[in-house]
């Protein structure tokens, strides 16, 4: 891949990769770091990579980087001492966008990632398998379970609203 093609990748895929990461991770600054790291790694290997493979390479790198962040998150312990001026927030937004977001949060990390790779990026089962390290059958099963779970939640919310 030439430098020109690398720059084309920035133009074509930076937004999509960022969207995929930030929607999963929900932390904009970390998502920016992951996107930047992914492109740094792509640049490092750009000479031995084909342009056609670059998108999958970027998403694979970004996905695994994101998983590392999520795993680190789970090790963060709850801080017991609250600041004096702290308060607990509990606001529920009722618009459909928020409902979908809440539904997504109920999915497992892998289900959420698969759903986003499918719906945002339009990847096939095979391509998603390549990015996540699963096989195509597993991708299909996880995705179908994710959709059923989403459907159940959305139907329930529709009844509540």
């Amino acid at each position: 891949m030439t430098e020109k093609e690398y720059n084309k990748c920035v133009e074509l895929y930076a937004d999509g990769l960022f969207r995929f990461i930030v929607k999963n991770l929900k932390r904009e600054e970390d998502a920016k770091d992951i996107v930047q790291n992914s492109f740094e790694i792509l640049w490092k290997h750009h000479q031995e990579l084909l342009f056609e493979k670059a998108k999958a390479y970027l998403f694979t790198t970004g996905y695994h980087n994101m998983i590392d962040y999520l795993r680190k998150d789970k090790r963060v312990s709850l801080v017991e001492a609250f600041p004096e001026n702290a308060k607990v927030q509990s606001d529920i937004s009722l618009d459909i966008h928020s409902v979908i977001q809440k539904g997504l949060e109920r999915l497992s990390e892998i289900q959420r990632s698969l759903l986003m790779l499918k719906d945002y990026e339009g990847y096939s089962y095979e391509e998603i398998a390549g990015i996540t390290g699963l096989n195509a059958s597993q991708v299909k099963v996880y995705l179908h379970r994710a959709r059923l779970k989403m459907k159940e939640y959305l139907v329930k919310m529709e009844n509540v609203l």
């Binding site: 920016k32 997504l104 945002y120 994710a146």
Partner: peptide, 17 residues
């Protein structure tokens, strides 16, 4: 089931391109 299809989110862009 089609409700589970995530809506397109074009508003999200990477700011430090």
């Amino acid at each position: 089931l089609q409700l589970s299809k995530l809506p397109v989110e074009k508003g999200i862009i990477f700011p430090n391109k």
